[in-house]
Design a binder for these strands. Structure first.
Lengths: 150, 150
DNA sequence: TTAATTCCTATCGTTTTAGTTGGTTTTCTG
DNA sequence: CAGAAAACCAACTAAAACGATAGGAATTAA
């Protein structure tokens, strides 16, 4: 039931971009260094995020990545859907293209999986990258020795 | 983010036992046949469930498995915790023995994972095997050609 | 021109998954 | 008592997923 590193690293990177939103393209290397992630591996994740339209890239020297939309317009669910696939603990209740099942109409198990999926979706979609930035700012203000743990 | 077959098969089997609750020990073979699961594989899952105290077994001919408690006293969360491990999408926010992380105090990611975990836990713990049986009965009553799809 | 940086494809070792195999032990029934 | 039914148990295995790594090609600012 665990998330893969795609989802974990990817959301970390997106949060990093959100914190640095409006400061031009952020090079992958700096994100990878801050987050302690293999640069090459993170590259693959950014590719996925770019193709999904969540980040924009600028090639060449002084290039890098930036969010394609404002942090307030990107939810945790948006990021996780792209990197982990449609939300759902079992294939027959995925948000998109659920795997067909001959018993679908009257399957009691299905009700359970749908309820869990809906609660996950609600939680994921309720948190934006902006919310995360706000929380970071709040904690920073509350504590002298707070550091950006992103 | 998917459940493994342990969780899926295991909950199916537990629901099967709940439907047949009070009818003495149910042989594994009959569960495996109804649910279309490898008998030997299901055996391993039942072993885990037995050691966790969710089912009781009776050995020898006419033996089998039965729920250790009433269906109303076993939640979906109980079953999934035993078969899939503590609930949580990432190791640092598992319900039990979360993986320590040096940044724990001020980690913004953590807030996200906790919120998702809590919503999953709430959904899982809110559904009992009895609820599932009730729903099956309800559907049965509503439709002539309803069949027990368990 | 050169250094920085994204883009792209392929490969690879390890771990997990989802079983299978081949038994042993217990207990009911005829 | 014999035989069948059933749980119990340990070891093995093929395939898939995971988490990278390798090696370059293309682009662009300075």
């Amino acid at each position: 039931m665990k998330l893969s590193t795609k989802g974990r690293y990817g959301l970390k990177a997106m949060f990093d971009l959100a914190v640095n939103y409006g400061e031009g393209p952020i090079p992958l290397k700096s994100i990878a260094d801050r987050q302690n992630i293999s640069e090459h591996y993170l590259e693959q994740l950014m590719m996925i995020l770019r193709k999904a339209g969540l980040v924009k890239s600028v090639r060449g020297a002084q290039g890098g990545y930036m969010l394609a939309r404002k942090p307030a317009e990107i939810t945790v669910g948006d990021v996780l859907r792209v990197l982990e696939g449609p939300i759902g603990l079992v294939d027959c209740v995925l948000e998109q293209d659920p795997l067909e099942c001959d018993k679908a109409e009257n399957c009691i198990m299905r009700i359970v999986w749908e309820k869990i999926r809906d609660s996950m979706v609600a939680a994921m979609d309720s948190i934006t990258l902006q919310d995360m930035c706000d929380e970071a700012e709040k904690r920073k203000a509350e504590s002298q020795n707070y550091m950006y743990y992103i």
